[in-house]
Simulated scan of single mutants.
Amino acid sequence: MSIVFLLMIGAAAGFIATRIMGVDTGLFTTIAIGVLGALLGGLVLRFLLMLTGLAAGLVGAVLGAIVLIGLWHLGTRR
């Protein structure tokens, strides 16, 4: 996966995940959440569900980003 493609999917996934979770973040944080979520979610979905393709990557990226936002909220509430 190229860096540009990863950033585009990450930006989209981060945007969708922050809107679903109701989090207000900056552009860099949104992209970072999306890219890390794409890596985490993509790996989990490929191993567990054996899905491939763009749709699986986007779904995995959004789910991974949602998990990261949840963990981020747990870490910052203290």
Rank of each mutant, 00 (worst) to 15 (best):
I20E: 07
V59R: 04
M8G: 01
V44H: 04
I16K: 00
T25L: 13
L36A: 14
M1C: 03
L58A: 06
H73L: 11
G10Q: 09
G14L: 04
L54N: 06
I66K: 04
G34T: 06
A61Y: 01
A11K: 04
F5R: 09
I69N: 07
T18L: 10
G37Y: 07
V62K: 02
L43S: 04
T76Y: 11
T52Q: 02
S2D: 14
G22K: 14
V59C: 05
V4K: 13
F47Y: 14
L7A: 12
L48K: 03
R77N: 09
R78A: 08
V23M: 14
L54S: 02
A11S: 12
L27F: 15
I33K: 08
V44L: 12
L74W: 10
A11Y: 11
L39Y: 15
L68R: 05
L51V: 13
L48S: 13
G57I: 08
L58S: 02
W72P: 03
G14K: 00
M8F: 04
T76M: 12
V59G: 01
R46K: 10
I16H: 01
V35F: 07
L7K: 04
T76K: 13
A13T: 03
A32H: 03
G41Y: 05
G34I: 05
V4S: 06
A61S: 09
R19L: 06
A12Q: 02
M50V: 06
I33P: 03
L74D: 11
L36F: 14
F47K: 06
G70S: 12
A38D: 08
I33G: 07
I69W: 08
L43Q: 14
G75S: 15
I66M: 11
L68W: 09
L51I: 04
V35W: 01
L68M: 09
G64M: 06
A11Q: 09
G41H: 04
V23W: 15
V35C: 09
I66P: 01
G70A: 10
L6N: 15
L27K: 02
L27G: 09
V4D: 10
L71S: 11
L43D: 03
G42T: 02
G57P: 04
L45P: 00
T29N: 07
A13S: 10
V67S: 10
G75H: 15
G26A: 13
T52E: 12
L71N: 08
R19A: 12
T76C: 08
R77V: 12
A13G: 06
A61W: 03
V44I: 00
G60K: 07
V62M: 10
L63P: 00
T52Y: 08
T25G: 02
F15K: 00
L71E: 08
L27Y: 15
A13D: 03
A11G: 15
I33S: 04
I69G: 06
A55C: 03
R46S: 12
A61C: 07
I9V: 15
T76L: 14
W72C: 04
L54R: 07
I31K: 06
G42S: 07
L7V: 12
G57N: 09
W72H: 08
T25E: 15
T30G: 12
I66T: 04
L6V: 09
L7D: 06
G53H: 09
S2L: 12
D24K: 14
I20H: 02
L43A: 07
I69R: 05
R46Y: 06
G75V: 15
T29Q: 10
L6I: 10
L54Y: 11
I33F: 15
A32G: 15
G22L: 10
